[in-house]
C-alpha cells in the first residue's frame, strides 16, 4: 500500500506541477489569477484528440500542433481580452472575474463541439505496469514524471539564463523599474502567456494520454494546480512546483483516512485553509495581501 501511494502521489504531483508552473509564471508576471489556464489545458487536450483520433494525423505532428495551439490560445486571450482591461487599469478582481468567464466560455464551447461523453485518445495501449519496489507503475506514468521533471528544470534555466526569462523576473519584481530600463511590459506579458500556455499544452498532452477527456477537466486541473501554487507561494514558480507535489502527497495519502471520493475535497479544504492562514504560501513573501 505505502509504495503504491508514494508512486501515485508522484504522478499526481508531476501533473499538478506542470499546471501550476504555467499558471504561476503568468500570475507572477501579470499579477492576476488567470483561471482560464484550465480552459487552455482542456481545449488543448481536445485539440490533440481532434488531430490524432478524428483527423488521423501522426502522433508526433499532433503533439507539436497541440503545443502551438495552446500557446496561441493563451496569447490570444491576453491580446483580445486582458490587454483591453489592463489599458483601462481594471482591478485584479475584474481580471479574475474575466478569466472565470473565459473558463466557462471555453468549457461550454468544448461541450458544444465534442459533446458531454468521455473521450479517450488511445495512443498508448494499456500496458502491464512494472513492479517497482512493490508498487505498480506503467511506462506512460514514468514518461509523465520524467517529462515533467525535465520541463521544470528547463523552465528554471529559462527564467535564470535567457533574456526573456530575466525580463520576466524583472517585470514580476517591479514593473515600473523594468520599464524604465527599457523592457516593454506588454511584450513580456505576451511572452508569459505564450510560455505558460505552452507548458499547459504539454500538461494537456500528458493528462490526455493518462486519463479520459471530459469537458470539465479544465476546472478540476486548474483548481489542483492553483491549490499547489497557493500552498507553495503563488508568485514563485519553484514554490508552485513544491506545493503541487505536496498536494499530490496530501491527496493520495489522505485516502488512507477518508473514502477515495473525498480526494477532491481534500484539495479544496487545503486551499481554503491556506487562503485563510497563510495565503502567501510556504515560500511566498507576505505582500499584495491587501
Amino acid at each position: 500500500m505505502f509504495p503504491q501511494l508514494l508512486v501515485n502521489s508522484l504522478i499526481a504531483g508531476a501533473i499538478y506541477a506542470l499546471v501550476a508552473s504555467g499558471f504561476s509564471l503568468i500570475y507572477s508576471t501579470c499579477k492576476f489569477v488567470h483561471f482560464a489556464h484550465g480552459a487552455t489545458i482542456a481545449f488543448s487536450a481536445y485539440f490533440l484528440y481532434f488531430l490524432f483520433s478524428d483527423l488521423g494525423l501522426s502522433f508526433g505532428l499532433s503533439v507539436i500542433f497541440t503545443i502551438i495551439f495552446a500557446s496561441l490560445l493563451g496569447w490570444l486571450m491576453d491580446k483580445v481580452v486582458y490587454k483591453k482591461l489592463r489599458q483601462r487599469k481594471a482591478s485584479k478582481v475584474i481580471l479574475l472575474m474575466t478569466s472565470f468567464a473565459l473558463l466557462i466560455f471555453f468549457e461550454s464551447l468544448i461541450l458544444m463541439l465534442f459533446g458531454a461523453d468521455v473521450k479517450t485518445i488511445g495512443y498508448v495501449k494499456i500496458a502491464r505496469g512494472f513492479d517497482f519496489l512493490g508498487a505498480i507503475i506503467t511506462p506512460l506514468q514514468i514518461v509523465i514524471i520524467a517529462v515533467s521533471l525535465v520541463l521544470l528544470v528547463l523552465l528554471y534555466f529559462f527564467m535564470k539564463r535567457t533574456k526573456i526569462g530575466k525580463a520576466m523576473r524583472a517585470v514580476a519584481d517591479n514593473k515600473e523599474v523594468a520599464e524604465v530600463v527599457g523592457i516593454s511590459a506588454e511584450n513580456i506579458y505576451s511572452w508569459a502567456f505564450i510560455v505558460g500556455s505552452a507548458i499547459a499544452g504539454i500538461a494537456a498532452i500528458l493528462v490526455g494520454l493518462e486519463q479520459n477527456l471530459e469537458p470539465m477537466m479544465g476546472t478540476n486541473l486548474m483548481i489542483k494546480g492553483f491549490t499547489g501554487a497557493i500552498i507553495g507561494g503563488i508568485g514563485s514558480v519553484p514554490g508552485a512546483v513544491l506545493g503541487s507535489f505536496l498536494l499530490g502527497f496530501a491527496e493520495n495519502f489522505g485516502i488512507w483516512f477518508l473514502p477515495s471520493g473525498y480526494k477532491d475535497a481534500i484539495a479544496f479544504a487545503i486551499l481554503f485553509i491556506f487562503l485563510l492562514f497563510r495565503h502567501q504560501g510556504i515560500l511566498g513573501i507576505g505582500r499584495n495581501s491587501k
Binding site: 489569477v33 485584479k92 478582481v93 486551499l271 495565503h279 491587501k290
Partner: peptide, 9 residues
C-alpha cells in the same frame, strides 16, 4: 481577506 483572495476563498 479582501479582493481577489476573498473571491478565491
Amino acid at each position: 481577506l479582501k479582493g481577489d483572495y476573498l473571491a478565491l476563498a
